[in-house]
Write a protein that binds this DNA or RNA. Sequence first.
DNA 1: AATTTTTTGTTGAAATTGCAACTGTTGAAT
DNA 2: ATTCAACAGTTGCAATTTCAACAAAAAATT
Lengths: 159, 159
Amino acid sequence: MATDTKTSKAEDPAADLALEDFLPYRLNRLADLVSRSFSRIYRERHGMTRPEWRVLASLGQFGRATASDIVTHSSQHKTKVSRAVAALEKRGWLKRESDENDRRVEHLELTRAGRGIYAELAPFARSYEAAVFAEMGDADWQALERGLSRLEDCLIKRP
Amino acid sequence: MATDTKTSKAEDPAADLALEDFLPYRLNRLADLVSRSFSRIYRERHGMTRPEWRVLASLGQFGRATASDIVTHSSQHKTKVSRAVAALEKRGWLKRESDENDRRVEHLELTRAGRGIYAELAPFARSYEAAVFAEMGDADWQALERGLSRLEDCLIKRP
DNA sequence: AATTTTTTGTTGAAATTGCAACTGTTGAAT
DNA sequence: ATTCAACAGTTGCAATTTCAACAAAAAATT
């Protein structure tokens, strides 16, 4: 890596931008690292994709929800949700029920098998977080929580 | 082991897992939000992709580097870097120079035009961060910095 | 020196994604 | 009541990403 050969900051006035310190890059990189490490669990055990995991987790959490609910709650594009729902249904982990009053809407629910998978995976999710927490230590974890929460608030208001 | 065999509601079995509080989900979501908002700048102004932006930023920062250097520095798969480099070269923003001693290696550098684009974009990157900082406030920003840094340290050790 | 292994970087093909267009349904406005 | 807009969800298609295989060159092994 070139340090200060011929291209110095004097010559290149735009260069106090270090990619490794840039917030969007850091967040993307961390999200990637964390995902890669956690997604192994549901991918290797059940060949699940991330969209599928999120739908499963949403339904595990809520019990019953529409695709739109899941779009909102899981922050995924509706096509992702649509395809993930179809995939989970195909495996018999999810069932649909048409709404009586509004025939556009389908209520989604995990089947018994689906709940089984969720019950299997959820503890891994918690223990994954517990491991990170243990590794980081309480103070740094709380700093992270605080920073992320505040950033979430800020970004929702001005996207 | 299991508490009881009823398996009635979805809240029963494993469900104090709230997706919205789960670290991998939060990081991915924030990374997405932040990226979406910042990437508009290079996407709309120059039709650039994120891999291309990262290569440009790496070269803007280092002046001269090999593709491998950029893979490491920008945390991107080598195929992404390879294609991003080809795209930037095609637009005349980047030039390659073969290494004399090792003919596998190519040293990459921005052209004058490429440096121009970088000089145009880098201030946006900084002002984007400044805006987030201003919105969050100093204390929360520092908490975020601390949390992210610590998490980076932890995740590199245990992937 | 000849072989094997590693490294650098590229490419083809399959899988994933995102956008826009679409169907079918409900609600609102005229 | 009829038209028009809005909404829930799906699908086709193009762009992107990923994976594995590849070529070429250098390093390591024999």
